[in-house]
Amino acid sequence: HLADQALVHQGKLERLRGVRVGVDAVFWLRSIQALKDPFADALGGIPPGIFGFVDKELEQFRRYDITPLFVFQGVAPGPQHSMFVSRMDQQMELAWTYLAKGQKSEAQKCFAVSTSRINGDFVYFIFHHLRHKGYECLQAPYFAGAQLAHFAEQGVVSTVFGPPGLLLYGVPSVVIHVNFSQLTFDWVDLDSVLQKWQITRDQFVDACMLAGTEYCLTYPYLNLGHFQPAAPGRFNFDAAVYIIKQAPLINWMQTFPTEDMKNDHVDGYCICKVLVQNSPVLHLQDHVIRPLGAGGPGCPPPQVP
């Protein structure tokens, strides 16, 4: 959607020369096309030649004098809603069914959808491989994104490379793609996003929650045509922005037809808001794990919604 709104900018790779970049390690691994083997899980889970492919990417960083600081996910909570898990299970079951029938092309498509190909074992191997190679690596206490936001705020890194969702943590700009062959990189800018929709950062966070995440359900009335028309089959994020500009999130929580439905949504929104605002991170000043945005000893605790 950011690309549709002309909010993805492109820059020359030379601008990153000599820059220390905080890297969401799993996001980076998923961006390496050679690692995307849809049959990896079926064959045992780890694509062959992984270290060779990773080393080629690392060589590109060295060639352009980019210093990566790799941040790995910590003990983050899993998805709160079973739909994210059951959908993957259904695709995996369908993939094996196609394979048993000899329909390899259909099986490949289902395997590709059903697995992230970057599982826990894979990440463990890569973490230790990078450390063995002498790269800076850190496993965050919780979310890699929150830790990267703290590093950016403290000036430990000049920019971050990861998913656009890092903007939710208040990171000013995020590199979302690096194309070494074309010597370019794509990035998104928080101020541009807020100006485009004429909203505050808090409203941006609330709009994203209304749109739905792994931790909160999509607002059920979001895709009604009278909010903002959308093309058939396309998700309408503009509707979420429109809704949140009309009234605060708490107001919309009063509109559910049943108390159970209201509780399901409110609980998810509260969890998501806390995870964005107050995820535990390793604070560099005193090497203590505290919520993101919390000050040092003696400072008042962060406001939790």
Score class of each variant (00 low, 15 high):
residue 201 R to Q: 15
residue 56 K to F: 13
residue 48 P to F: 14
residue 47 P to H: 08
residue 228 Q to W: 13
residue 222 L to F: 06
residue 172 P to I: 09
residue 136 E to W: 11
residue 33 Q to D: 15
residue 170 G to F: 04
residue 167 L to T: 09
residue 252 W to P: 05
residue 298 G to R: 09
residue 114 S to Q: 10
residue 45 G to H: 03
residue 24 D to T: 00
residue 105 S to W: 07
residue 163 P to F: 04
residue 279 S to H: 10
residue 123 V to Q: 02
residue 214 E to A: 10
residue 138 L to C: 11
residue 245 K to I: 00
residue 151 F to P: 04
residue 262 K to M: 14
residue 166 L to K: 01
residue 142 Y to C: 14
residue 298 G to S: 02
residue 231 A to L: 12
residue 271 I to K: 08
residue 38 P to N: 12
residue 7 L to F: 05
residue 164 P to D: 05
residue 111 F to N: 03
residue 249 L to D: 07
residue 125 F to V: 09
residue 297 P to N: 10
residue 155 G to V: 00
residue 29 L to P: 03
residue 239 A to Y: 09
residue 126 I to Y: 08
residue 220 P to E: 00
residue 61 F to G: 02
residue 64 Y to N: 11
residue 181 S to I: 11
residue 149 A to I: 04
residue 56 K to Q: 15
residue 155 G to L: 06
residue 225 G to A: 15
residue 216 C to W: 10
residue 8 V to T: 05
residue 63 R to W: 11
residue 269 Y to C: 00
residue 63 R to N: 14
residue 107 A to M: 12
residue 246 Q to N: 02
residue 217 L to Y: 01
residue 186 D to R: 14
residue 239 A to N: 07
residue 252 W to R: 09
residue 221 Y to E: 09
residue 105 S to N: 13
residue 147 Q to I: 07
residue 248 P to L: 12
residue 5 Q to M: 13
residue 284 L to A: 11
residue 77 P to S: 03
residue 134 G to D: 01
residue 39 F to S: 04
residue 297 P to K: 11
residue 206 D to Q: 04
residue 79 P to Q: 05
residue 268 G to A: 06
residue 100 A to V: 03
residue 293 G to S: 10
residue 280 P to E: 03
